[in-house]
Computed example of a mutant assay.
Amino acid sequence: MPRLVLLELFKLFRLRSVGLGLLAAFLLPFLWALAPGLKEVYGLVLASGWQVVALSLLAGMEFLFPFLVVMAASEALGSEVSQGTLKGLLLRPLPRSALLLAKLLALLLYPFVLLGASFLGGVVAGLPHGLGPFFGGTGLGEGGFAGTGLLTPKAALLELLRAHLLAGAVLLPLASLALLYGTLFLSTTASALAAVATLLLMRLLVAFPALVPFLLTTYLDLHLRPHAAGLGLPLLLIYTAGFALLAALVFERRDL
């Protein structure tokens, strides 16, 4: 099984969408470091390089990072179908569930690699602004970017690491959902569109207040609300496992 997971990781990171996604995540912080309209849009004058890291996460999690994860998860199976390599894999004496689990584990690692690339790009882009103590906040802790006084590098780093880990957890069920649609449609485009449509539909369910605490979309901003992790984090993991189980059941019964 470990060798199969390594093989799937190798195939995943060879995908063009994954390579471009990692490059985009790394370069995004440089745009924020040079953006002339930060004061007008965010009311912010950069006081530290740590704020560049936070800005990249905040902007990326609005749309870019979820989209990149959904695309990678959709292409992981869709590319195998379009290239005709999936049937060859299924001819091996290997359970279908094992193959799908290996793909899933690779896909669940990708959000953290993507966010790691963004974090690294943010640190590099923020170097000219300094990474020492500063008066203000990271934008991800108490007081937002204004902060509550002097913030040490250690405190800033811990806030940013916590936010990135929570953001990674937010992206896990999106990868699992896109893989589920991949098993249903065996198409990259259809899987990605179905995953996005499902999220948009869930957003509309806010009209039913009793459902709101249990909706996946309620916790897509969990990295901004770490106090909600007590309920949000277990629910995100349940969604991830549930979508994965459904994907395994569908994949076992698909006629390929």
Rank of each mutant, 00 (worst) to 15 (best):
P2Y: 14
L4R: 00
L6T: 10
L7K: 00
L7C: 13
L9H: 06
S17G: 04
L20P: 02
L20F: 12
A24N: 03
A24E: 01
L27K: 00
L28W: 08
P29F: 13
A33T: 11
A33K: 01
L34K: 14
L34M: 14
A35N: 15
P36S: 11
G37N: 14
L38A: 10
L38T: 06
Y42T: 07
Y42C: 04
G43E: 07
G49T: 01
L58M: 13
F65M: 07
P66M: 04
V70Y: 00
A73W: 01
E75Q: 09
G78S: 06
E80G: 08
V81S: 03
S82E: 14
G84Q: 02
T85Q: 05
L86K: 02
L91Q: 13
P93D: 14
R96W: 10
A98N: 00
L99G: 04
A102F: 04
A102K: 05
K103L: 09
L105Y: 01
A106R: 01
L107W: 02
L109E: 02
P111C: 11
F112C: 09
F112D: 04
L115N: 08
G116M: 04
G116S: 03
S118G: 14
S118T: 11
F119E: 02
F119D: 02
G121Q: 06
V123Y: 12
L127K: 05
L127G: 10
L127P: 04
H129F: 15
L131A: 13
P133S: 12
F134L: 05
G136W: 06
G139W: 07
G144Q: 04
G144H: 00
G147L: 09
T148A: 13
T148Q: 08
T148L: 13
G149W: 02
T152N: 00
K154R: 12
A155V: 11
L157T: 15
L158N: 09
E159Y: 07
L161N: 07
L161H: 06
R162V: 15
A163K: 00
L166A: 08
A167I: 12
A169K: 01
V170K: 02
V170M: 12
V170S: 09
L174R: 01
L177M: 15
A178V: 12
A178T: 10
T183D: 07
L184R: 04
L186R: 07
A195T: 13
L199S: 06
L200K: 07
L200Q: 09
L200W: 05
L201Y: 12
L201C: 11
R203A: 15
L205C: 13
L205T: 11
A207I: 15
F208C: 09
F208Q: 09
L211C: 13
F214Y: 15
F214T: 09
L215W: 03
T217M: 08
D221Q: 10
H227F: 14
A228W: 11
A229W: 06
G232E: 00
L237A: 14
I238E: 11
Y239K: 03
A241I: 12
A241T: 07
F243Y: 11
A244F: 07
L245N: 07
A247S: 06
A248Q: 05
A248K: 02
V250D: 08
V250C: 08
F251N: 00
